[in-house]
Amino acid sequence: MRRAMRAELTVTAKGQVTLRQAVLDHLGVKPGGRVDVELLPDGRVELRPAGARADVADLRGALRRVGQRPLSLEEMQSAIEEAGER
């Protein structure tokens, strides 16, 4: 099980925050690098290295639905062909 890393940061009078080296190392961001910030609806913020792309492996199970069995490639091809005939 992966353990979450926590860091408490201080906001300056200018409203700026300096990220600790451990955070930058975790993101793989070097000096001069850029960070993407996503503001989430629940008040949280997500940081990621700018230009970082999700790994294809991260998509595994993204379309899984409870109670629905996975389809074989043959079943998928058949469904595509059937839809094309309509």
Score class of each variant (00 low, 15 high):
77 Q>C: 07
43 G>T: 01
36 D>I: 04
71 L>P: 00
18 T>N: 08
27 L>E: 05
7 A>H: 11
7 A>F: 07
2 R>H: 13
60 R>N: 13
27 L>G: 02
70 P>L: 04
50 A>G: 01
70 P>N: 00
77 Q>S: 12
41 P>D: 05
12 T>Q: 05
36 D>V: 04
76 M>S: 00
24 L>F: 04
19 L>K: 03
12 T>C: 08
40 L>M: 15
42 D>R: 03
28 G>K: 05
31 P>H: 06
42 D>P: 02
72 S>A: 06
15 G>M: 12
34 R>I: 05
66 V>E: 15
50 A>P: 07
82 E>N: 13
14 K>H: 14
47 L>Q: 01
52 A>S: 13
4 A>M: 14
4 A>G: 10
8 E>S: 14
67 G>A: 10
63 L>M: 15
42 D>V: 02
32 G>W: 07
5 M>R: 15
86 R>H: 13
75 E>D: 11
31 P>S: 03
70 P>I: 00
44 R>D: 08
26 H>I: 01
65 R>E: 15
47 L>I: 05
61 G>M: 09
12 T>N: 09
84 G>Q: 11
40 L>V: 08
8 E>L: 11
16 Q>C: 02
6 R>Y: 06
64 R>M: 02
9 L>R: 07
59 L>V: 11
38 E>P: 00
39 L>R: 10
51 G>H: 14
37 V>F: 12
52 A>C: 01
51 G>L: 14
8 E>F: 07
83 A>F: 05
